[in-house]
Design a protein around this nucleic acid. Structure first.
Lengths: 360, 360
DNA sequence: TTGTATGCGTTATCAC
DNA sequence: GTGATAACGCATACAA
């Protein structure tokens, strides 16, 4: 038997109050307590009241581990993203957590750093088993890793399109979005467009798709992208964006516009243009991708592609919750849900009206 | 007995493989399997190998609910923050999750929106019971709520100083940091300093402390803060910062500097100055608080106070893990650990050398 | 070093 | 409507 607790001590854990204790106190059975707690329909108001009284008197709290063990579900899902400090993933996580809460789920966040090995580990780790399912935004995974995604638990992939095998995923319009941004720059009369950001050729990520959309748009206008105008940045941050922009300029490349493969890259690049005294959009127009909050308040504000982040988050959560409810694993023939992107024109490309540097 | 699994079906859940199955397969007892899995020292290499073989053959994965129930610990902690989309909390969460991972813990993230009711709910909700402890960054709580913090589970409070009762917490130097920022602006010769951001008078948050530090610094220089130069913004975002700045300017207040109670407020204010054609720092110097990533790349870059975020995160996690290990609840006499802030001078106040608008 | 028996707190299956 | 009782899968005394 457990040693008798010393009442005067404030040590923790306080003697746990179980359903049995509540049942004893209320003079009912454990099952009845369970019925009350779980709001089962057929309980007499009288007994119900007695049980509730006992619960509050004893300060009873449900033990989730026991409940999970019995139910076979935890009420938690895992969200795996590269890094929370990247605004896009912070905002995405915000929405995933909010929507999950609406659906009664709590979210456990894992950071992979976008590193392939750690992404593979997330898929198979014991920690993953603590939750009912996984929403996964991969970055380092390659098409060759597709088989690793055929796991035996509910899984929804985020943001990528190329990795799809039989895995459910919510994709964004990377190609279309990038194409729209490029076409917009072309319409503004820009012809010497730099690209900031690069990607692992073996990868299957947003990088290759956005680059393709960009390149195709140029090709449609009979323009060939000059590789000297590509600023390499495998990691997509403000810092690497700035470095990439510097390299392009120091290479002596002639540039009248910049397309950042995402917003932080674009903002990093814009910072360098600012340092060099180049006016945006007067001398160089800038566009990004993601529509993060910063871009709405930067000076000048940043033209970008809104990938439908809120929609992606909501869809992913609903899909996953549905898979969990239906007891369906990944690898059982995955749906692809594509969210349409939207170009948002702001000052960094001349504003909606195409005027010059704004505001004066 | 459990029905024989149909090998051809891919439905989930696949028949769960338990320790018993592994034990049977390896020809050992459950206890031995447990020993191997938990890396107990005294296991014969031979049996160990047999067990590991059985595990991989059967694809055995530990059931965490069962383990948690038996152990009385889950290996998870909860992190409750206002909103992940606010860069400060995104970066903080990033670090908390990373440090927790180092210590073998997984982090469950809750968003309170900074709303008092939801903050109180986080403290007592059933969901909280899913984890071993809580790292809590309150925003809406008031001194009157102090008793709600005396919970019977490990709790570490973040960032606030005023709410301390007997609760462990990791505080930042709000007063000192704000004072340093104000003194810096005064040294730069600014005298008509606006404050952007406000706070609930009944609250006990960073707002009142930072405002106090600011006001004290001015008083020390014989300057009284003109309330017409205060831009109210209860919610601290770029949007509200911009609105507050607009109100101050439209009020006709004469301003040569702005202190944002945090960085996003300052950036929102800076955006408005940009729109009005006011030069920063030429016409108006701007300083913030938090040292978020954006401020390092804004144009101009933002002078700010680095509150020691990484240190705060690390300290909080270590403290909480320690409390969990020692089985110590909140309310048992809390330590206060204060992290020292550091002023970081950038272009928005003239740069380290005090020069004018930079770069040209 | 390894096996056996029991408990962890909840839910589910039945009788009553 | 309500009550006894058997899972749920793992850890841990204690025995061997």
């Amino acid at each position: 038997m457990r040693p008798v607790p010393i009442e005067t001590s404030r040590r923790w854990p306080a003697v746990p109050v179980t359903m049995r204790d509540v049942a004893r106190r209320a003079g009912v059975s454990v099952k009845t307590v369970s019925n009350v707690v779980n709001e089962f329909p057929h309980v007499t108001p009288a007994t119900r009241a007695r049980v509730l009284a006992a619960i509050s008197e004893l300060g009873y709290r449900m033990n989730f581990s026991a409940r999970s063990l019995s139910l076979g579900r935890t009420g938690m899902i895992t969200l795996a993203v590269p890094e929370l400090r990247l605004p896009y993933f912070a905002e995405l996580s915000d929405e995933v957590i909010a929507v999950a809460a609406e659906r009664g789920y709590t979210v456990l966040v894992e950071q992979t750093g976008g590193v392939r090995e750690r992404e593979l580990e997330v898929l198979t780790s014991d920690r993953r088993r603590m939750t009912d399912g996984l929403i996964f935004s991969p970055l380092g995974l390659r098409p060759a890793d597709a088989r690793s995604l055929e796991v035996d638990y509910p899984l929804v992939l985020l943001g990528e399109r190329a990795l799809h095998g039989s895995v459910h995923h919510v994709a964004m319009g990377n190609v279309e979005g990038a194409r729209a941004a490029a076409e917009h720059l072309l319409e503004r009369g820009r012809r010497r467009i730099a690209v900031v950001g690069s990607y692992d050729e073996r990868g299957a990520g947003a990088g290759s798709l956005r680059t393709r959309g960009f390149t195709e748009a140029l090709a449609d206008s009979g323009i060939e992208h000059d590789p000297r105008r590509t600023g390499e940045a495998l990691e997509w941050t403000r810092t690497t964006g700035a470095q990439a922009m510097r390299r392009v300029l120091e290479r002596g490349a002639d540039v009248d516009a910049v397309f950042g493969l995402n917003d932080v890259l674009a903002l990093g690049a814009m910072r360098v243009l600012f340092e060099r005294g180049l006016r945006v959009p007067g001398d160089v127009a800038v566009a990004g991708f993601d529509d993060i909050e910063d871009g709405r308040f930067s000076c000048p504000s940043l033209t970008t592609v809104q990938p439908g982040r809120a929609q992606i988050a909501r869809t992913a959560v609903w899909l996953l919750v549905d898979l969990i409810a239906r007891g369906e694993p990944a690898g059982a023939g995955g749906r692809e849900l594509v969210v349409a992107p939207e170009l948002i024109v702001r000052e960094s490309t001349g504003g909606p009206d195409g005027s010059g540097d704004a505001p004066k």
